[in-house]
Design a protein around this nucleic acid. Structure first.
Lengths: 229, 229
DNA sequence: CGGTCTCTTGACACAATTCAAATCGTGTGG
DNA sequence: CCACACGATTTGAATTGTGTCAAGAGACCG
């Protein structure tokens, strides 16, 4: 068997979890696993051959590059997330690994056939798509009106929630999956502003920086208030 | 029959277009048409009873309100658009009519049953959801890095495209569906900046204002260049 | 050790916001 | 029909948050 679904770390939560084991095996026969190193690209905006994929481990970013070469991160993809624009003739955005990542990839045609054949898969992808839409709109809300400080506080809050196992609880300490530059891109700020505001959040006692990427939460309530949500 | 699908203005393009006429009639029996006047709300963030709907005529906005009462417009809905968060226990955002609008509404439970029963409907909604996701990410890209001028130019360009029949052609003149305040909310700007930049775009010869809401395109190419896309 | 990256910090400029006031348009009631 | 009030828009002046430019500090690697 090409794909080791039995040992898949996201077999409970990914879109394919809704399939029966026979259906899943049939789909697995068409797919293959792939590993990306940090910075490696899954596909680029404009690709006609853009694959679809489920993320098993690691993290990806979805980003757009404007005419002047500025990057804007549009979304992060976490394990069990699905990547791929099903009905578009070509990809609209770049997808790049943030950390070493393992994926389960499929040709678009194979996924499209599976969506036709297995209604449960269509529903699962619909659910996931709606969740992605919600996430995108949340980011939109964040970058719309809020100050640099509030955006950063909200992002840190989200990361703390994502780093903890239970979704309603915050991790006390965690590693930022993004560089300063990537945080800046995501929030529509500059590297310098991110760095300054992180310093200010530390001075206020909301967080404490631990090395370049580490963050420890000192005052989660304060952080939440600063984020204004 | 409750719903006059036969005379529906979006019967070709809405999600229900993929159903057979028997299936559509069955679904129609569960729905009902509704008219909203400008400013009327379809449902509010937090509603548990949030209906689902297809927009027949008019325009809606999807918006979030933060703790300080500032509104942020997250998306516009055009005719044939589908509204409703299928898998969430409650609505996350407000949905309000921008102009007098006619909708075809369904209870969430009825839509969910139809999605189970008619695989083609699930696929159609998946397609629509992906399109919404793309639109949301485009707006995100726009509000992320661009200057006030570029945001406004891009929005005007989009409206010109939306106002024309063919999607690849721009309307020479059209009415803004939004007030200045709503444009400002959508682009993450203030009313004053929007007003000023509109004046500047007019001075440059890119557009011409016609009354409060009317816009005539003078130099679509210039407008596109200013938008930086 | 030198080279390259990422991050931090400072000084300054500027675009957009804020505050304030004038103008326009529209509907209402006398 | 006019006078008036009210909301939406425009315009002006002053302020400020972020971006820009520039330089320096750490970390990592060959």
């Amino acid at each position: 068997m090409n794909l080791a679904c039995a040992t898949c770390p996201v077999k409970e939560s990914a879109a394919c979890a809704v399939l029966t084991s026979e259906e899943r095996d049939a789909l697995a026969a068409a797919g293959r696993t792939r590993t990306l190193k940090r910075g490696e690209m899954l596909f680029a905006a404009g690709d006609e051959e853009a694959a679809c994929a489920t993320l098993l481990t690691g993290a990806l970013k979805v980003s757009a590059v404007d005419v002047e070469g500025h990057e804007q991160i549009l979304a992060l993809v976490h394990p069990a997330g699905f990547i791929g624009e099903l009905f578009a003739p070509f990809a609209h955005h770049d997808v790049v690994a943030l950390t070493e990542s393992r994926l389960c990839t499929f040709a678009r045609a194979d996924i499209e056939r599976a969506v036709e054949e297995y209604p449960a898969l269509a529903r699962a992808l619909l659910r996931r798509s709606q969740a992605d839409l919600l996430a995108s709109r949340n980011l939109l809300e964040l970058t719309g009106h809020a100050s640099a400080e509030a955006r950063l506080a909200a992002l840190l809050h989200d990361f703390a929630a994502a780093a903890s196992d239970s979704s309603c609880h915050l991790a006390q300490r965690f590693e930022l999956p993004l560089t300063r530059g990537e945080i800046a891109n995501m929030l529509g700020l500059t590297i310098e502003t991110v760095s300054r505001k992180l310093g200010e959040l530390e001075d206020m006692g909301a967080i404490q920086r631990e090395g370049k990427r580490g963050i420890a939460l000192r005052d989660p309530v304060l952080l939440h208030e600063i984020s204004g949500r």
